[in-house]
């Protein structure tokens, strides 16, 4: 579905993509991960044929550079930020369906299945729609075109948790032979949608494997933060370090330890036994940043 060979992109002196090779087959659900500036958006833009690049790139057998329009006819795109559209909801649907030569009915039925009845919202100006609604509209437009490939660039980045959940659910319900490439920096999104992970780093692919593989490497580790009175902090710290946990962190008033999800209560018990009073505690799921830095060992490039 996607074939990338030796893809290289520079902006001035900066090498953003460095001889990237990649192949995605039909029906795969691929998540594209990477730190900010890793080149996710640049890769997306290359796939869309929006910017010039070196190397070869084809989508569903269509060369992006030579045949951009044909390539784009085979994909649906959902950007991070919905485009500004001067007009009503119905006009937007009409404009983009006519542009693609798609039956509006196909998009409308998608909208309804996403809980957005065109009859109810049609006359609303687009700028009055919430971010969540807009992202669903874009998804419906992409799906309505009945394309074999969906490209999503951080589609949930600007959504509140509920809207994000709804959007992900909608994405999960997409036909199984539709290929999905989702760029994200949220591990939760990735887990919900993807079965293959690509980690982009330094302009190259640093990890390419299943979600399970990565999860194995991450394990079930969480970070447990405990807050203790100031006078016993140093003692608590020394004790926790003596337990030989993977890492002991500190952030001003709290001490963090990385532990298995199942073992987090043990730490609290341990402290209790040492008569160190715990004023408060909470756990933190590792962020993608953590994941990449600490698990894959990808530090800042400098």
């Amino acid at each position: 579905m996607i074939r990338v060979g030796g893809l290289t992109k520079r902006f001035g002196m900066h090498l953003i993509l460095d001889r990237l090779d990649l192949s995605v087959t039909k029906g795969e659900r691929v998540a594209l991960l990477g730190l900010n500036g890793a080149g996710k958006t640049t890769l997306m833009r290359c796939l869309l044929g929006l910017i010039p690049f070196d190397g070869s790139l084809s989508i569903a057998g269509q060369d992006v550079r030579a045949n951009g329009r044909e390539a784009r006819a085979r994909l649906g795109y959902v950007p991070q930020r919905a485009p500004h559209f001067d007009g009503s909801f119905a006009e937007m649907i009409e404009f983009f369906t006519r542009l693609r030569g798609v039956e509006p009915a196909a998009v409308e039925s998608r909208l309804e299945s996403l809980g957005l009845a065109p009859a109810e919202h049609g006359e609303k100006p687009v700028r009055a729609l919430s971010g969540g609604m807009l992202q669903k509209v874009l998804l419906a437009l992409a799906l309505g075109a009945d394309v074999p490939l969906l490209l999503l660039d951080e589609p949930t980045a600007n959504l509140d948790p509920r809207a994000r959940r709804e959007f992900l659910r909608a994405l999960q319900s997409v036909d199984h032979d539709t290929t999905i490439l989702l760029a994200s920096h949220r591990f939760a999104d990735v887990q919900a949608v993807a079965d293959r992970l690509l980690v982009l780093h330094g302009g190259r692919i640093a990890f390419d494997g299943s979600v399970a593989t990565l999860r194995d490497r991450v394990g079930d580790a969480v970070t447990l933060w405990v807050k203790v009175p100031t006078d016993v902090r140093e003692r608590a710290r020394q004790h926790l370090e003596s337990l030989a946990l993977p890492a002991v962190l500190s952030n001003g008033s709290a001490i963090g330890v990385r532990v298995d999800h199942a073992a987090r209560a043990d730490v609290l018990v341990e402290l209790r036994q040492r008569a160190i009073p715990v004023e408060d505690f909470w756990t933190e799921v590792p962020s993608l940043q953590d994941l990449l830095e600490n698990v894959l060992g990808l530090g800042e490039r400098s």
Binding site: G68, P83, F96, L99
Partner: peptide
């Protein structure tokens, strides 16, 4: 204006030249 608002990118991502 379209470039600033992201509309241009979205439009160009459609099957158009």
């Amino acid at each position: 204006e379209d470039r600033e608002s992201g509309a241009l990118e979205y439009v160009l991502a459609q099957p158009v030249t």
